[in-house]
Amino acid sequence: MSQQDDLELALQLCDIADRITGHRFQALDLTVREKPDRTPVTDADTAVETAVRQALTTARPDDAFAGEETGGSVTTGRTWLVDPIDGTKNFLRGIPVWATLIALLEDGRPTVGVISAPALHSRWWAAAGQGAWLRRGPGTAPRPLRVSGNTSLGHAYLSTTSTRTWDVFHSHEAYLRLAEECWEDRAFGDFLQHCMVAEGTLDIAAEPVVNAWDIAALQVLVAEAGGVCTNLLGASPQGGTGALSANPQLHRLALKVLSAAADPGAA
């Protein structure tokens, strides 16, 4: 099988997911339960992950699988990572900013990523060496993506997911210091902010905690758009210690600010 075959499969898996989420979004009988970490999960989350897992069992029986709701772990070799609905809180409240994230890791490195947000009529995808792409609206031609060319924090547009989580997982002071250095900050949140970095409409996306299935697809998207996506320490973002996406120059500057603010002795 080729990398193009894997990309086509990931796109097909998102088609399966979109049919399920499109049917359940704003459904009056949507069921919601609270997980032990107090985050919500809907019947749509579990239905998507089950359907994708079953499809992969048929299409790639020798590959490993790890999903947010049904578990699994990244192994050596090939592992598919699935976040059935990134932005579940938005989904259950009827806010259209949510997406299915599907990534293929080969020996721990993301090589294929697809982010599908049907309520936004948007789908982003990338594969190693093949660039990053966006199709917005049915029947439209995909367009290549490129990160912003801005190299100044003073002109940078910054986004995070939730400022409250910085107190728990990193340093609220560190985020505030970075926000003060930037031109503007917002909380577009979750997948969307990293996609916007890849598009070049946002300069920096920073969040203090992620899981592997939250970030792998976005990592390859940002990289193929010419950017850098690491954790808040400059290492792989798949270990859970946050995510920072930007073009290479802004990434270096933001990383320095976050490190110095979190550890004054490092300044």
Rank of each mutant, 00 (worst) to 15 (best):
Val209Ser: 15
Leu253Tyr: 00
Pro144Ser: 13
Arg143Glu: 15
Leu153Lys: 05
Arg93Leu: 10
Gly22Leu: 02
Gly240Trp: 04
Gln238Lys: 02
Leu244Gln: 06
Asp6Glu: 15
Gly139Ser: 09
Thr42Pro: 05
Leu9Val: 07
Leu244Ala: 06
Ala59Ile: 06
Gln219Met: 14
Ala187Thr: 13
Ala267Glu: 03
Thr58Pro: 00
Cys195Tyr: 02
Asp5Lys: 05
Asp263Asn: 15
Glu8Cys: 02
Asp45Met: 03
Pro248His: 07
Pro110His: 10
Val74Pro: 00
Asp15Asn: 08
Val114Asp: 06
Leu233Lys: 12
Arg109Pro: 00
Lys35Asn: 05
Glu199Met: 06
Thr42Met: 10
Thr201Tyr: 11
Glu199Lys: 08
Pro61Asp: 02
Arg109Ala: 13
Gly87Tyr: 01
Gln4Val: 15
Val82Ile: 14
Gly137Pro: 05
Phe188Glu: 12
Arg136Gly: 05
Pro110Leu: 13
Asp18His: 11
Asp29Lys: 08
Gly139Ala: 04
Leu9Gln: 08
Thr75Ser: 13
Thr46Met: 09
Cys229Met: 09
Ser162Cys: 10
Thr88Asn: 06
Asp107Tyr: 06
Val32His: 08
Ala266Val: 12
Val52Thr: 07
Ala216Thr: 07
Leu250Gly: 04
Ala212Ile: 11
Pro208Ala: 10
Val197Gln: 12
Ala179Gly: 10
Gly189Cys: 06
Phe191Ala: 15
Ile16Trp: 09
Val220Cys: 12
Trp125Leu: 01
Pro118Trp: 09
Glu199Tyr: 08
Val257Leu: 05
Pro264Val: 08
Glu199Ile: 05
Gly242Thr: 09
Asp5Trp: 03
Asn90Gly: 10
Ala64Pro: 00
Ala103Ser: 11
Leu202Val: 13
Gly200Asp: 02
Glu68Arg: 01
Thr39Leu: 14
Ser148Phe: 13
Glu8Ser: 14
Gly77Asn: 02
Gly108His: 01
Gln26Asn: 12
Thr75Ala: 09
Thr46Gly: 00
Tyr175Lys: 01
Leu11Ala: 04
Ile95Val: 15
Gly149Asn: 14
Val97Glu: 14
His121Val: 04
Ser122Leu: 00
Ser236Gln: 11
Ala132His: 09
Ile85His: 00
Val112Ile: 15
Thr70Gln: 12
Cys14Arg: 01
Leu202His: 02
Gly129His: 00
Thr70Ala: 10
Pro61Arg: 01
Ala174Ser: 12
Pro138Arg: 09
Gln54Arg: 14
Lys89Gln: 15
Ala206Gly: 06
Gly240Val: 01
Gly67Arg: 05
Thr230Cys: 09
Pro110Glu: 12
Thr57Pro: 00
Ala217Tyr: 09
Ala10Leu: 12
Ala66Gly: 07
Pro144Glu: 11
Ile115Leu: 04
Gln3Glu: 15
Glu224Thr: 08
Cys14Glu: 06
Ala66Met: 11
Phe25Gly: 08
Pro118His: 07
Asn150Pro: 03
Glu224Tyr: 05
Leu11Thr: 02
Pro144Asp: 10
Ala126Glu: 03
